[in-house]
Amino acid sequence: MRNILTVGVTTILGAGLLWAEGPADRQEQTHGYGLGRPATDQEIRAWNIDVAPTGEGLPAGQGTAKQGAALFAARCATCHGPTGKEGPMDRLIGGAGTLASQHPIKTVGSYWPYATTLYDYVHRAMPFPAPQSLSPDEVYSVVAWLLYQNGIIAEDTVLDARSLPDISMPNRQGFLPDPRPDVPKP
């Protein structure tokens, strides 16, 4: 079994650019060291929390801004302010049109390029004292409230795994690849 698996995967890897030098001996082949073990589905499910811009990783569930308002007030406003603008932590609302000014205001509405990132991050890391404690419905709801407050969706828009990836963020085209070295030599 192992030999068949090893040979099969080695062939695939050998064709890839990253592995172009090819396996020189058995230890450089897949499972050549014989260390570790297959991960179980349960182990993967427990940690596989990332949400991609395609929407891959979004769970079942839904929410609206109306539902999110109370949740924001109860769980988020202490750090971000009653309207998401006052802080003391990151400002979340407003700032449209300020990025090229002397004092840019980078918020979810003015800066974030993907709405899916908001789901990923709120679920992953918020609320700060209790990360990963919100249910999918709660995350969809608070994400909806933030997008509504930023003028990106309507108050009654239902966010779920299908609708969230389709949301067009205002600064979606605002990011460019690294052009460095960019400073002329003296």
């Binding site: 995967v9 890897l13 890839g16 990253l18």
Partner: peptide, 12 residues
Amino acid sequence: KTVLQEVGVHPD
């Protein structure tokens, strides 16, 4: 690289 080689990464 050693660890990814051990696991076997899809070329894409």
